[in-house]
Amino acid sequence: MNSNGCDWRTVKKYVDKEDFSPAHPAPKPEPESKLNKFKPLIDQWLTDDLNAPRKQRHTAKRVHRRLQEQTEIPGYDCSYRLTAEYVSKKKKELRQKKSAEGNLPLEHFPGEAQADFGCADFYENGKKYEEAKYLVLSFPYSNGGFLQLNYGENLE
């Protein structure tokens, strides 16, 4: 101890120190979940559901019931709440992944047009024309459109 009441080792420690900000606590490791061995199976079901009709997709209740009744891995004793929280988190993750794959904003500028040709039956003055040709021009910016019927594919 010196005359100021400080140990020389303590003084040396602070003199040599460059960063005085407090150390951040290390994150606690996530505890082992009972659901961990079933997560790959649940992930597979939810990934397959992306291509299924909306009404046929797995709900959390259905996942829980299916794991209870027909799982290939014995020993499923997880609560519904644990399963539902995981299913909710996984569905949100899959939605974000799917929306990030690519959406372009639909933007139409003034004067821009789209054209389409096709065949249709129509009546003119009581006479039926079968498979007559038509041209449709649409203007998406103003939602306007133009239709021209033709008797055939020629110079008209």
Rank of each mutant, 00 (worst) to 15 (best):
A84D: 05
L67R: 01
N150L: 13
L35I: 11
E153P: 01
G152S: 12
D48K: 08
A52G: 01
K39Q: 15
S33P: 03
A100F: 09
G145W: 08
S3M: 12
Q68K: 15
Q96N: 10
L46H: 02
F38Y: 15
T47A: 05
F122S: 05
P140H: 05
Y129G: 00
K89Y: 12
F38R: 05
N154D: 14
P105T: 11
K90G: 01
E32I: 09
A23E: 15
K89G: 09
K37H: 00
K55P: 00
H64Y: 06
E69D: 11
E156S: 15
R65V: 07
A132P: 03
E156C: 14
L104Q: 13
Y134C: 03
T71Q: 08
G152C: 03
K98M: 10
E112H: 11
G126A: 11
F117V: 11
F146A: 05
L147F: 11
D19A: 04
K133G: 01
S21G: 10
F38A: 04
V136S: 09
I73E: 07
C78T: 02
K34D: 08
Q148L: 14
D16I: 00
K127E: 15
R81G: 07
R57H: 08
N143H: 08
L67A: 02
L135V: 13
F146W: 07
D48E: 15
H108V: 09
Y134S: 02
A52L: 15
P140E: 02
S79D: 06
E72N: 12
Y129T: 07
G111L: 06
N125W: 03
W8T: 10
Q68H: 11
A84G: 03
E69H: 02
E18T: 09
H108R: 08
L41M: 02
N154T: 11
N2D: 15
C6P: 00
K61R: 13
D49P: 03
Y141M: 01
F146H: 10
A23V: 14
T71E: 09
K28R: 13
R65I: 04
D7M: 04
N36L: 10
L41H: 02
F20C: 08
A115H: 10
Y76R: 02
T83E: 01
V63N: 01
P29M: 14
D7H: 11
Q44H: 13
L94A: 05
Q148S: 08
K127A: 13
Q56K: 13
Q68V: 05
P74V: 05
C119V: 15
G111E: 07
E101Y: 05
L149D: 03
L155T: 12
E101K: 12
E107L: 12
E85I: 05
P105S: 14
K128R: 13
T10K: 09
Q44S: 14
P27T: 14
F38S: 01
Q56W: 06
R95D: 10
H24C: 12
F38G: 04
Q56L: 09
P31I: 10
E112C: 05
L46K: 00
E32C: 07
K89A: 15
G145N: 05
N143W: 01
R65W: 03
D19S: 04
E153N: 11
P140D: 03
P40Q: 10
L82W: 00
K61I: 06
L137S: 07
G75E: 06
K98F: 06
G111K: 06
